[in-house]
């Protein structure tokens, strides 16, 4: 990757491929995500979204092709990437047997924030979430929507350049989803790049640009309005259905 690209793009993927034996989970996908962009990464179950995301997070090495995240190469500098990204998965990943405050301290601490920073950040974070009264409560006692919002706030506590969100709003009520997306917008306005997968097509409309994966490759990529025009469909839902119907791979 040339330096110039890194400045301009938060994520670039170049013929990124992952094979497991004879099975090609991700087949030569190429795309770029600009800084501060909200990039929707859609696809049916089993289309290869999670595999692609794991490669971008430095969790698994690409079989071929290359990708860079926040200016670092995924195959050679996974440790540097991990310092510069935030990650939040659909599977709730805070420690349920720790309190809200202890979770914040833990994650802030392992991202290398100083004690002073931890104090400041956690105070403003709790204030934003209006959870000052809950800070000494165990996380397991919080409702799911709150947990997810807390989880997102913690994923961006170290001000990462890129945040990966893997179906962050699964099982959350519409109101909380709306609030959640407001948080995503606020974070993107500050220059954080958001890479989000979702199954809710209304959420796809909130994204700046959207890619739809079918059978391991990117079948469509563009702004939601451009995609709707291209497939002459009234909603993103119809765009998705048109593409996903052509899939040959069985959903898992």
């Amino acid at each position: 990757m040339e330096r110039g690209n890194n400045q301009e793009y938060a994520i670039t993927a170049e013929k990124l491929t992952k094979t497991f034996g004879a099975f090609t989970a991700v087949d030569q996908i190429s795309f770029t995500v600009s800084r501060g962009e909200i990039f929707g990464f859609l696809g049916a179950n089993g289309a290869g979204k999670t595999t692609a995301m794991r490669m971008l997070c430095g969790l698994s090495k690409p079989s071929s092709g290359s990708a860079s995240v926040a200016g670092y190469d995924v195959s050679h500098q996974p440790e540097a990437i991990k310092k510069n990204i935030g990650y939040m998965s659909q599977k709730f990943s805070l420690y349920e047997d720790l309190t809200v405050m202890e979770n914040i301290t833990f994650y802030a601490g392992i991202y290398g924030l100083s004690n002073q920073e931890i104090r400041d950040k956690s105070a403003s974070l709790l204030q934003e979430l209006k959870m000052e009264h809950e800070k000494k409560k165990l996380v397991k006692s919080l409702p799911l929507g709150w947990k997810q919002k807390l989880s997102f706030s913690i994923a961006i506590i170290h001000a990462p350049k890129v945040v990966f969100l893997d179906e962050p709003t699964g099982g959350v009520d519409p109101l909380t989803r709306r609030e959640f997306w407001e948080m995503i917008y606020a974070s993107a306005r500050k220059g954080t790049t958001i890479f989000v997968t979702t199954h809710y097509m209304d959420e796809a409309e909130y994204c700046d640009r959207v890619s739809i994966m079918v059978d391991g490759s990117i079948a469509a990529l563009g702004t939601p309005s451009a995609l709707k025009q291209q497939f002459s469909a009234p909603t993103m839902n119809d765009v998705f259905l048109q593409l996903a119907r052509n899939a040959t791979r069985q959903a898992d």
């Binding site: 997070c57 991990k82 990650y87 998965s89 599977k91 709730f92 990943s93 392992i110």
Partner: peptide, 14 residues
């Protein structure tokens, strides 16, 4: 089982 290890994996913890 809980899935927190996935979160730990994406942090810079060695």
């Amino acid at each position: 089982e809980v899935g927190t290890i996935e979160q730990i994996n994406v942090t810079p913890i060695r």
